[in-house]
Amino acid sequence: MHRILARQTLSPNVTRLDVHAPRIAQIRQAGQFVIVHLAENAERIPLTIADSNPETGAISLVIQAVGKSTHELVGLNIGDSIRDVAGPLGHPTEMIAAGHALCIGGGVGTAVVHPIAQGLHQRGVRVTSVIGGRSREWVIFERELQRYGQVVVCTDDGSYGRKGFVTDAAKEILAADKVDMVYAVGPVPMMRAVANLTRGLGVRTIVSLNPVMIDGTGMCGGCRVSLGGETRFACVDGPEFDGHLVNFDELQDRLSTYREFEQRSIACAAGTCRMEKNTSSPA
């Protein structure tokens, strides 16, 4: 069992949980994730580790409530426990050793950008972050990222920072400054737009993918993505890939596989749907 040590609401549906997982807190590296399994009947959910504290044994997970299982996770309070946390999984971020990195985060993806910026900063790389959200309340990790370099904030509605998309701000920075590597994490359309932008400029771009995943150890193949026409498993080969090679259309499509199920699951949890009779359950 893994106790919740701290809890913080970052946005209307984004919550940060600090979870006790001492071994993972000790060895995790930027870019790695854990699989979280709240209870017996819950889903296994992959979550990127946003931060850790080896002294308290805490790992920080930033969770956007989307399906029933994520809603239950964000509903946890200090002292509650998560049944299973496995990791750290996936490859650590490919970091440049020197130069200038542009870190772009959209929405909850900003939490994933955080350890990357942190790691780059520790290596002495100059970091510029561009982060965004729909409006002011959706902008997260701004203060944390400011520790590692300049932060440009964008909101879709202009309620905070610049009005517009993160790609607009990124485009200006790429035009004005030499950038050695771009790291982009956020919704699929955002990562696709960044990859399209940097492809033309010839700037290597790393994206972190979050496909449907079950075991996280390579066993199920549900997280397969197409990379330059070849199949890769996000859990063992990723989760970070060369953004210029990722088939984002396919990724977005596969992410929609269980949308109807998610809605049914939420409705049932809220008591607004009748539990379906299931004749095929074991005794």
Binding site: N41, E43, R44, S69, I214, M219, C220, C268, C273
Partner: peptide, 24 residues
């Protein structure tokens, strides 16, 4: 699906019992 994914969803994650079980 791979057979591993199909069977894991159903056997390990009890997807046959959705929505009582969360994995579809």
């Amino acid at each position: 699906y791979s057979a591993n994914e199909y069977l894991t969803r159903i056997n390990l994650m009890a997807a046959y019992d959705f929505p009582r079980s969360d994995t579809p």
